[in-house]
Write a protein that binds this DNA or RNA. Sequence first.
RNA 1: GGAAGGUUAGCUCAGCUGGGAGAGCAUUCGCUUGACGUGUGAAAGGUCGCAGGUUCGAGCCCUGUACCUUCCACCA
Length: 885
Amino acid sequence: MKKELARTYDPKGIEDRLYQKWLDGGYFHAEVNKDKKPFTIVMPPPNITGQLHMGHALDNTMQDILIRWKRMQGYEALWQPGTDHAAIATEVKVTDHLRQQGIDKNEIGREKFLEYCWEWRKDYGSRIIKQLQKLGSSADWDRERFTMDEGCSDAVLEVFQRLYEKGYIYKGSKIINWCPVCQTTISDAEVEHQDQNGFFWHINYPVIGEEGRFVEIATTRPETMLGDTAVAVNPNDERYTDIVGKMLLLPLTGRQIPVIADEYVDMEFGTGCVKITPAHDPNDFEVGKRHDLPEINILNDDGTMNGLCGKYTGMDRYDARRQIVADLEELGLLVKVVPHTHAVGTHDRCHTTVEPMIKQQWFVAMEEMAKPAIEAIKNGDLTFVPERFDKIYLHWLTNIRDWCISRQLWWGHRIPAYYCGDCKRTIVSKKAPEKCPDCGQTHLVQDPDTLDTWFSSALWPFSTLGWPEKTPEMEYFYPTDVLVTGYDIIFFWVIRMVFSGYEQTGKSPFHHVLIHGLIRDELGRKMSKSLGNGIDPLEIINEYGADALRLTLMTGNAPGNDMRFTRSQVEASRNFANKIWNASRFIMMNLPDGEIRQPAPDELLVADRWILSRINTVTKEVTENLERYELGIAVSKIHDFLWDEFCDWYIEIAKMRFNKENADEASANAALWTLRTVLTQGLKLLHPYMPFVTEEIYCTLLPDEETIMTSPWPEYREELDFPKEAAMIESFKELVRGIRNLRMSMNVPAGTKTELFIVGKDAQSAAEFSAVLDSMKGIGRMLFAKKIEVRADAEGIDADAATVVTGRVTAYIPLNELVDKEKEIQRLSAESAKMDREIARAEGMLSNPNFVNKAPAAKVEAERGKLEKYRSIKNQVEEQLKRYR
RNA sequence: GGAAGGUUAGCUCAGCUGGGAGAGCAUUCGCUUGACGUGUGAAAGGUCGCAGGUUCGAGCCCUGUACCUUCCACCA
C-alpha cells in the first residue's frame, strides 16, 4: 500500500514523533566499538539556569550536522552532552528566588542553601536539555553528565590535588578583582572594561616641613586616598628630584607618607605625581612591593568603607568619594576637577564596577601550563577554523596571568584544602583527612571557598569520559575531534580546556576548534535580555519547524562571522522544506504499486545520466565542503541542486515519461528509478541539516527502511560521471530558455503551440540533439511545440520563422503573423553585435602570448571553447539575418 | 595604545587554491503547465570603500588610506 503525503509540509506533530522514534531506536547512542573509527564532539554544557537562545541553537545545529554526517559515514559518532552547574549564575538565581519567598541565604546557612540549589537543578536542569531536543539534537543522552556529578567532581578534586602537589596551585595574598555586589572574587577573564565618563580630581598633598609647598596628584578614585601609603614620581623627573624622600601629610587622615621614585611613573602624563594605593590597584601593588610599602585595605566586602576610614567608615564607596571631594574642597586642597573618560573594570555578569583588592586566594600558576597550549597551535596539533582566531588565542596565552580560582560562593566544588586549627598546617587532599598529619589533632576545617565554575568545565572533554579512571571510553573516544563554540568563550573555556588537557592527559582535548559568531537581530544588534530583542528559537520552531530554523542558521553563515536573523530567511527555509516535500509527494504519487526495476545501463536516457552525474558531483563537493567545515557552502550547494536542477529541470523533463499516455515501460521505469535514486541521495545529503523532513520523506518513500539517520552517506562514483550527457542537457536548457525569452518578447500567449524545426550547426550536433529529444517523451510541452523536427539544414523552412540560436543548434519557429520582421532583425543584430564583442574579447586573450604561455592549459582550452561557441552562434545569427533580408 | 573583522545589487549576506560578479528577500512584468502560489518563468539592479602596486589577468594577493564593528590593554 502506497503511503501518501499531505499537501503542504507541516512540521507540527511530525518532529516530536520522529524524535521519539530516534530515541526509542537508540540511534543517538555510541559505544566503544573497535570495528569502527570513533568521531567525538563534546557539547559545550549549557547552564542549568539557562533557557535556549539563538546562540545555543546555532552551536548545537552545527554540532548536530557534523555528528549526523559522521554517523552516516560509518563512524562511531559520540556527541557527549551535559550541563554546567554555573556556580555564580545559579547561586544568584537561587538566592533571588529564596529572597522572594522571604528566605535569607545567610540565615539558613550553607547546607540548607545547597539543598535548595540541588532542588533547583532537579527542577530546571533538564529544561534546557528538552529544548535542545526540540532542535533535533542527536546527542547521546544516555551519557548526559553534569559538572557536579560524582565523576566530574572526582576529576575536579583529582586535578586540584595534582596541581597543588606540583606547585601549580598555590594560595597567596595578591591583588584580585572583587565584585562588591556578588561578594566574590572573579578572574581576569570575567572583568569587562567599559569606557565611562568620569573625572580627574587634582588634589594637593602638603609637603611636611615646607610651608606652602604641595605635591599635586590626580586621581579618578579619590576615596582610595585613604589607603595611600606613598606618592611616586619618576626618578628622572627633575621637577621633583628635591622632594624624593620627603614626607607628605595625607589629607583627611593625618598620616604621613613618603615621596618615592619609581620608573613606573609616566612623566608626561598628568602632573607626573602618582598617589600609591597598594591595596587597591594592581600597579600600585607592584610599586608597593618594590618599595616595601604598607598595604592598607580600606574597603569592606560590600563596597563600603571599613573601620580604618575614620568619619567615612560605613559609607558606600561612592558616597565616600563625594564626601571626600567636598571635604578636600573645604580644606582648599582640591585644585581642579577635569572631565575624563577612562576604562573601568566591571563584572561581566552584574556590571558592577570591580574593586581591586588584596586578598588571600587560591591561584593557578599559568606560565608552565601555557607552554604546551601555545606549542599546540604552532605544531598543528590544534587548529582553529577560521585560522585567524589563532592570534587571539596566542595573544591571550602569551600574556596570561595567574588564574584566581577561589570563589566566595557555596554552589560549586568546594576547595579540598583543610586547615589544622591547632598547628595551622594546610592539607590538600581529595578525601577529607581525619586528623592533622603533623600534630595529629582533629580540629580540621575545610576551606569555605568553592572553585571557579570554569575550573570544572576545563576538564569537560575528559571528565565526561570517565577520567581519571582509565575507562574504555577515554581510550576510544579521547581526544575528541572537533569543538564547536562561539568566539566569545575562547578565553573562558577553550584555552583552559587545552592547557588542562595537555597537563592531565598529555594531549590536546580536540584537534579542531570550529568557531562561530553571534546571532544578531534584524538591526544587527546583539540579542540580549536587557534589550529584550532576543528571538526565541522555540517560538521559531513552533511556527516554522526545527528544520527551517536550522537551515536559516546555516545559510550563508561563514565560520567566525556574526549573522543577522530575519524572519524572511526563516520563511525561505520553510519554503524549501515544503518544496522538497512536494517534489517527494509528486514522485511518490507516480510510483507504481509494484517494484521499480533497476534499469540496465542502456535504459538510462540522456537526462537520467545528466542528473545522476550532477548529484554525483554535488555529493563529492558537499563532502569536501563538510570536511573543511564549510557548512554554509555545503548546504547552499544541496539547496541549489535540489531546487534548481532536480525540481525545476529534471522533474519537469522526466514527468512526461510516466504519464498515462506513455506506453514505453522501460523509459517510465528508468525515469522513476532515477527520480527515486536522486531524491534518496539528495535527502541523505540534506539530512544533517534538516533531519526531520528528510526522515519523514525517506521512510515514506522507502517503507522498508527504518531510518535515514543510519543510512550510509553517499559516495562519489567515477562511473556515474557523464560529462557528455551533462553538456547535452545544458545545451537543451539553453534552447528552452531561448524559446521562452523569444515568446515573451513577442507576447506569444502560453497556449499557442507552434512547429519547431531544429538545425544543428553540424551533423554531430544534430544527431546528439535528436537523441536528447528522443529521450524526452512529450517534451513538446516544455518547448511550446505541437511538432518538433530535427533537420539537416534550413532548406524549406518558412523564411519568416523566428529563430533561437544556441551554441549547438538553431531553432526555427514559424510564428507567421506574430513575427515582426523589423523587430527580429533588430534583435538578431543586437545578438550579432554582442557576439562580436565576445569574440573580440576571447581573441584578444588568446592572441596574447603571455596568456597562452603562462595561464594553466585548462583555462586556455576553456577560452578556445568559448571562442568557438561564439563564432558558431555568430555564424548562425548571420545566416538568419540573411534569410530575413 | 595594540589586534582582528567588515566595507560586493534597494536590504541581509555568500564568493573555496586569482581566470567573464552570485543567492535570498524586496521591486517590475508574465503564468489556473495534471507536486508545490510556501509555486513558476523572466526583467531590472553592482566603477566589489578609496588610492597605488604585483600579475597575461585582481572582489580575491601586497602597500597605504577612510569609515564601521568587535576584542584585548594596569597611564594614575
